[in-house]
Write a protein that binds this DNA or RNA. Structure first.
Lengths: 203, 203
DNA sequence: CGGCCGCCTTAACCGGGGTTAAGTTCGACA
DNA sequence: TGTCGAACTTAACCCCGGTTAAGGCGGCCG
């Protein structure tokens, strides 16, 4: 991808705020990146796919979810522009994906191959540190989620969610929000009735 | 700490299974390590303490927990021999600890200063990679926990917990188990009555 | 020895959320 | 335009877990 491309510049800025990255490493990274588009409802990744791609959302919105043995579906995360989207746990464990990653709206992604990134990181402390920093931030996010399950009621988790993703509320079907906060669509509907049919930003 | 010490040898082996670490890095790490003991009920860390120590449990058992504004207590984790014990999220965010870390039995710890480790890692890709690997494993564990909250009932989470920490069940009071799986002691008691007063290994 | 306290259990009551089912709205599409 | 289906809501019923309170048990200490 061209370093002069606006997407590339924006991404660079964002990465710099996580950890400093020398220009050489940045160029090397970009040279392995390709862009990809997914239409609304399309899949970036399905169970059984080899977990080898690290994506960054450039534009649009995706959700990460999985389906358990009983066919019950759970949403793990939503990811918008600037966020990393990948079956991270499976990449770490070098297993095939167990998750779906699906575009909720037309989405553009920057795609990196994990082993190429790993290869570059073998030779750069800075890149290695950046990668660590990124996992650390993911870790903190998961711990925040753990906190919400341990200490908040479903209603509070819903309100928290509305605060977290104000810009995406209009694009996410409520049953997926319900799944994300760990309740059924029916229960979410009741909560929204109690709370007074909370914000669902006009478009 | 002496590299010839049995604890040091055991730890080395364990770290090697996570990611390779050259002898020079290992020696440097060890030279900054000190050992510390905590009696049963004693604290390794309390809210407000600067989050600067990375501990590894050599012997014993600790729990990580926090108390929210309403005084409600939640157990985030238990850590036994060979496991890392630290207010990780706070270290990552460079904030003071918000958690308690408490010994459930007499415990010995290996203590490292975060900034010393960071300093070493600035000069070693191998150490940097090892650190990343460790966070990655923490991340996977948190995602597993997220899965349990999303898809398992309290009863299933209890049985899962019994499978996870069979060796520590005897040392952990039930109300702490309840807190860990996100229910009240009363509810756990009922579950145990249903399930048939599950294993609580004789000592 | 007796009393206290922490831990665990049991019981009774209540409320939130799961389940099932029906009804509404709305957009896609023939 | 009519039909179909997905998404959302509402209602009825039930169960799990929270809450409160009481009682048992064992260890610690005066």
């Amino acid at each position: 991808m061209d370093p002069a491309h606006p997407d590339a510049r924006a991404l660079r800025t964002q990465l710099e705020s996580v950890a400093p990255l020398p220009p050489a490493d940045w160029k090397a990274l970009l040279s392995h990146a390709r862009e990809s588009s997914v239409e609304r409802g399309g899949y970036v990744c399905k169970p059984g796919d080899p977990a080898e791609a690290l994506c960054v959302v450039l534009e649009g919105l995706v959700r990460h979810y999985y389906v358990d043995a009983r066919g019950r579906e759970s949403v793990k995360a939503f990811r918008g522009p600037g966020e990393v989207s990948a079956p991270y746990a499976e990449i770490i464990q070098r297993k095939p994906s167990r998750s779906f990653i699906q575009a909720l709206v037309p989405t553009r992604l920057l795609v990196l191959q994990v082993d190429q990134v790993e290869g570059l990181a073998e030779r750069s402390v800075a890149l290695q540190r950046l990668l660590r920093r990124l996992v650390e931030l993911h870790f903190v996010a998961k711990e925040q989620r753990e906190y919400e399950f341990l200490q908040l009621s479903a209603e509070e988790r819903y309100q928290q969610f509305c605060r977290e993703r104000p810009g995406h509320l209009a694009d996410i079907p409520l049953h997926q929000v319900a799944s994300y906060i760990g309740i059924t669509p029916v229960a979410l509907s009741r909560i929204r009735a109690r709370v007074g049919r909370a914000p669902r930003r006009a478009r």
